[in-house]
């Protein structure tokens, strides 16, 4: 997976989309890999990318649009600088995930699926990160974190925010 950290780039670039398409040219049914890589390159898959992908893969724009909209991983507009995903599945629930989610939405002042006003963090829910013996689990971008309580969550947020503002990380 070539996904870059969310929020690192959001400028549309025809050349970069073209490069992704070229890299997957021989792949059968390669739409998902292409979309992953475009989102990795550009941070999102907007209408221009949809049009280019459709044209290149000989699909209709509607089809590509339908696929993008189906999968929670794909976004039509860029996320915040960091994406924090809180696992709300049962194993994590048994260890207080609901309380953690409540803490997260209240402390960040956003709902699940939303981005903080400063653009530093997009908060999302996820169902299972495969860390069910060390729950509650959270994923910060691609980094899995186990046994997260409110305090640990706040530390993760602080670190993500520092990263977003380019400050040295705590």
């Amino acid at each position: 997976m070539s996904e870059v950290a969310p929020g690192t780039s959001s400028e549309f670039s025809e050349e970069r989309v073209r490069a992704v398409l070229d890299a997957h040219r021989s792949e059968r049914g390669g739409l998902l890999p292409v979309l992953h890589d475009i989102q990795g390159e550009l941070g999102c898959i907007d209408e221009r990318a949809v049009a280019m992908v459709a044209c290149d893969l000989n699909l209709s724009q509607a089809e590509v649009f339908g696929v993008v909209s189906f999968y929670p991983d794909f976004r039509a507009s860029p996320s915040g600088a960091s994406v924090i995903r809180i696992c709300r599945a049962e194993a994590c629930q048994s260890m207080g995930a609901e309380a953690l989610a409540r803490h997260a939405t209240e402390s960040l002042g956003v709902g699940l699926g939303d981005t903080t006003a400063d653009g530093s963090i997009t908060l999302e829910q996820v169902f299972c990160l495969g860390n069910c013996a060390l729950s509650p689990a959270v994923m910060v971008n691609e980094k899995l974190v186990g046994r997260v309580d409110s305090e640990r969550f706040d530390a993760l947020v602080a670190r993500a925010r520092a990263r977003a503002s380019g400050e040295p990380q705590p």
Binding site: M1, E27, G29, G30, L31, L32, P33, L35, H36, L57, E63, G66, V67, F70, Y71, P72, D73, F74, V126, F127
Partner: peptide, 27 residues
């Protein structure tokens, strides 16, 4: 080949997974 899902639980169902590998909505 490794194919990477995109956050849809339903793609664990075998036919939805096949749709997904083929590059479609995981229906």
């Amino acid at each position: 080949h490794v194919r990477v899902g995109a956050g849809a639980y339903i793609c664990g169902e075998e036919t939805a997974m096949l749709e997904s590998i083929e590059g479609r909505r995981g229906v």
